[in-house]
Amino acid sequence: MKWGGVVSFFASEHAMRAERVLERAELPARLVPGPREVSPNCGVAVAFRWEDEPKVEEALQSKKIRYEAIHRFDLDDEEGAGSGRVLTGETA
C-alpha cells in the first residue's frame, strides 16, 4: 500500500481512536511508528491514502479527535516504514 499522508497526534490515545474512526469510516489507515520528521510528540502516527485526505480530516473532526497536524508524507509498506520521507513542507 502506498500511504501518501500521516496524521500526527499529541497523545497515542488519540492515534488509537483515530485508527478506529477511520476503520469504521472504511478509510484505509494504519498505525505507524511516528516518523521523527513529522512529530516527536507521541510514539505513533496514522498513515492514510493522500487521496482520502478530505474524508480523513472530516472523520477526525466529526468525532472530535484531537490531532496535531496532517502531513503529506510518502510511506511505502513495500519498502518498510523506515523509508518514509516528508515530500514537502506542506501540511493540510
Binding site: A11, S12, E13, A15, M16, R17, E19, R20, L31, V32, P33, G34, C42, G43, V44
Partner: peptide
C-alpha cells in the same frame, strides 16, 4: 506498555486501553 513504543505489542495494548476508554 501503553503509549510508549511503536512496536506491535505496545500498539495492541494501546488499542485495548483506548477501546476501554471509549
Amino acid at each position: 506498555n501503553v503509549g510508549r513504543s511503536g512496536h506491535s505489542r505496545s500498539i495492541e495494548s494501546s488499542r485495548r486501553v483506548s477501546l476501554a476508554r471509549e
